[in-house]
Design a protein around this nucleic acid. Structure first.
Length: 192
DNA sequence: TCGCAGATATTCT
DNA sequence: GAATATCTGCGAG
């Protein structure tokens, strides 16, 4: 299982380090797991795209907490998003998990997604459906949990990592051109 | 492939 | 009270 030290760095670094790691979820005694294939980093108050850019609110308070805690929130009236808090307590920073490559409990994931057998977890809200992620695991400690944690997965060298501007936030695209904060892996099945 | 409707928590006025 | 949001699914072309 990954330690708190792993999450205690700046979000861009943690985001890259998370690629290829295994996200595990235990629900009803069944293991649901997948390799992380796409992530986005969100910085502190200086990052205009971050929820924390306008100061602390009850909703984003988790981002100001300590590293290794999950931050789950609801968007567009129908979708959950799953983030992991990084850096020190008092520094608002997080990494959004955007996509997984399912490895364990695939049948269960398909049922969780209403029978959709393709594109099970290739989007931030889809992966939440597949792994049954909702407010019940908001503020969850990922370094000390039996229902939601991360562990080492495949070995990913830098040459496999793609990067680019973040999605859904045009106003941050220009900034992201200089320092891309979205990272993803392609052809994951070749490296398993 | 592309464009748009969908439904609600949270924040802004 | 109104606007907005780290998106997905579906229907048309």
């Amino acid at each position: 299982m990954l330690t708190r030290e792993f999450y205690s760095h700046e979000p861009g670094y943690v985001a890259r380090a998370l690629l290829g790691k295994k996200l595990c979820r235990l629900v009803d005694g069944q293991l649901l797991a997948g390799l992380i294939t796409e992530v986005e980093a969100y910085g502190g108050p200086e990052d205009s795209a971050s929820h924390a850019s306008k100061g602390q609110t009850p909703r984003n308070a988790v981002m100001f907490g300590k590293a290794g805690i999950s931050y789950v929130y609801f968007i567009y009236g129908m979708h959950y998003m799953f983030n992991i808090v990084t850096e020190q307590k008092g520094r608002a920073a997080a990494v959004l998990i955007r996509a997984l490559y399912p490895t364990n409990g695939i049948e269960k994931m398909i049922r969780n997604r209403n029978g959709q057998a393709r594109h099970i977890a290739d989007g931030p809200a889809k992966l939440c459906q597949a792994l049954k992620i909702d407010f019940s695991i908001n503020k969850h400690d990922l370094t000390n949990s039996k229902t939601l944690w991360l562990q080492s997965g495949i070995n990913v060298s830098n040459i496999h990592i793609n990067s680019g501007p973040r999605i859904g936030i045009d106003y941050a695209a220009e900034k992201d051109k200089n320092a891309p904060l979205r990272y993803w892996l392609s052809n994951v099945d070749l490296y398993i």
